[in-house]
């Protein structure tokens, strides 16, 4: 999912940085320190999730889990993914500093949209909840793949084919991610249903 450094044009990089800065600013302003502790621990979960490989077809994929983070964190998903990707950049050199803005926006923005679209689906047990969970997981990855593809496409017309291939290659990942997210939510619903109350008012309720 990460775009490497040195690929994108300065205009796209700049756009990514500005959008991520806005999202991070709003995320930080909305979050108090108790919420930030949750965000930090969930960033660590995201980081660990990205190292977990799930078998899929002949190969395997790693979990992205941006949808799950988005559901629980709302706007705080921006700063949360920013620090997780910064840590990955420093520890594993995935991506880098200049491209960090684009990579964070690609993953955080679809997750935020899914948060607002589906947060009302989790109040009662049933098919609706599982549907919401599957869609949050799958659409967050779809959105992330789409944003990444667009970032490539807007850089140079020669990248359009690569962008299309990148998006198509993520379709199985979307399905896998949707299933895993639904199963994680099913586990949480069975054991700690009170954590799933992000519907209705702000998502703040689950942190206090």
């Amino acid at each position: 999912m990460h775009i490497s450094e040195g690929v994108l044009s300065p205009a796209v990089l700049g756009g990514g940085i500005v959008l991520t800065a806005i999202g991070t600013g709003i995320g930080l302003r909305k979050a108090d320190y108790s919420r930030l502790t949750t965000a930090a621990v969930l960033s660590s979960v995201f980081f660990v999730g990205s190292l977990v490989r799930v078998p899929l077809g002949p190969g395997s994929v790693h979990l992205i889990l941006n949808g799950l983070l988005g559901l629980f964190l709302g706007w705080a998903v921006f700063p949360s993914l920013l620090v997780a990707l910064l840590l990955q950049a420093i520890l594993f050199s995935y991506g880098g500093v200049a491209v960090l803005g684009v990579n964070v926006f690609d993953m955080a923005f679809p997750a935020l949209v899914c948060h607002y679209l589906f947060r009302g689906f989790f109040g009662v047990a049933g098919v609706r909840r599982m549907f919401g969970a599957f869609c949050s997981g799958a659409l967050s990855v779809a959105g992330a793949a789409l944003c990444t593809a667009l970032a490539l496409g807007f850089t140079d017309e020669g990248f359009w084919t690569s962008a299309k291939i990148l998006f198509l290659a993520h379709i199985p990942v979307m399905a896998a991610e949707g299933c895993v997210t639904a199963l994680i939510i099913a586990f949480i619903a069975k054991n700690r249903p009170e954590l799933l109350r992000f519907g209705g008012g702000s998502a703040k309720g689950d942190s206090s």
Binding site: L42, V45, V48, C179, L183, I184, I185, A186, F187, N191
Partner: peptide
């Protein structure tokens, strides 16, 4: 998938409890 979902769900729930 169910096993991984349960394992990750447990990690997730423990992480939230830990953060509190």
């Amino acid at each position: 998938y169910r096993t991984i979902g349960n394992m990750f769900g447990l990690t997730f729930v423990n992480a939230i409890d830990r953060s509190r």
